[in-house]
């Protein structure tokens, strides 16, 4: 009896987690526009989605911003993590403290603050401002995930490389970077998902002309959501699922597993 209770409990938890997604997936294949009744299988919402230029533009924006912003943030954050390690302990703690504040800060505050900053300097809001905003809030995550990798043993490895005659650049590229790789990868993936996921900060910094997936859905709510957005959400979910499986599969053979 106890055994069954265990399974029932887990079943309920999983159901609560995944039922909404299942509902979304099912309704995206619905024939009618209804949000509650499944009247038959159809791919017409997918067709509508792919032919809707607004949706396609939002998808393109979302992913170009996510890719460029996460790559930029990863480069800056990695250098920062290495640099911070070279500082005195007091300065390190100060910088890491500064690094943590944006992480804990409410998105809405960051969003409004960035909006005001852009306006103050007369920068018109567009794709570039969203990109800059995303780089800004991604950097702390990268520092946070790379920083623990920059430890004493990496320092010793770096010294060992210098000892064997390597230039500082060669030692950094050949020895330090491979050691930091798991942290850098985690930072990159984290930045990417944070960027794709973000609504609040994007909302404030996007200006009139451009939309990402999340801001598009939000604006559609006012006029009524069409099932084509269910289709979009389903595709995004499927993509994430595939990516997750791929990462897990790739890291399986290695000792250090990537966190996502």
């Amino acid at each position: 009896m106890k055994k069954y209770l265990k399974f029932i409990y887990i079943g309920i938890v999983v159901l609560f987690l995944y039922l909404p997604i299942i509902a979304l997936v099912v309704l995206s294949f619905n024939e009618s526009k209804s949000m509650s009744v499944f009247s038959g299988f159809s791919l017409k919402w997918y067709e509508e989605m792919f032919s809707n230029r607004m949706i396609m533009q939002a998808v393109i924006n979302t992913f170009t911003i996510a890719i460029t912003a996460s790559v930029t943030a990863t480069i800056i954050g990695t250098f920062a993590a290495v640099g911070i390690d070279g500082m005195k302990t007091k300065q390190q703690n100060l910088i890491l403290g500064f690094n943590n504040i944006p992480l804990l800060n409410a998105d809405i505050v960051t969003g409004i603050a960035l909006l005001l900053t852009f306006l103050m300097f007369g920068i018109s809001l567009n794709w570039g401002t969203v990109y800059l905003a995303h780089v800004t809030f991604c950097i702390p995550y990268v520092i946070l995930s790379v920083r623990p990798r920059v430890n004493k043993s990496v320092n010793t490895l770096y010294e060992a490389a210098l000892d064997l005659g390597a230039s500082r650049f060669y030692a950094f590229v050949k020895i330090v970077l491979p050691e930091l790789r798991p942290g850098i990868l985690a930072g990159l993936l984290l930045s990417f998902t944070m960027s794709v996921d973000d609504f609040v900060i994007t909302h404030f910094t996007r200006g009139a002309g451009i939309n990402t997936i999340s801001t598009l859905i939000y604006s559609q709510v006012k006029v009524g959501i069409r099932p084509s957005l269910f289709a979009l959400s389903t595709i995004i979910f499927a993509l994430v699922l595939v990516m997750l499986l791929l990462v897990n599969f790739l890291s399986k053979g290695r000792k250090e597993s990537v966190i996502y």
Partner: peptide
């Protein structure tokens, strides 16, 4: 050349 305390071999 140095032989380091914890060897510092490139893993």
């Amino acid at each position: 050349n140095t032989v380091f305390q914890k060897y510092a071999l490139f893993p």
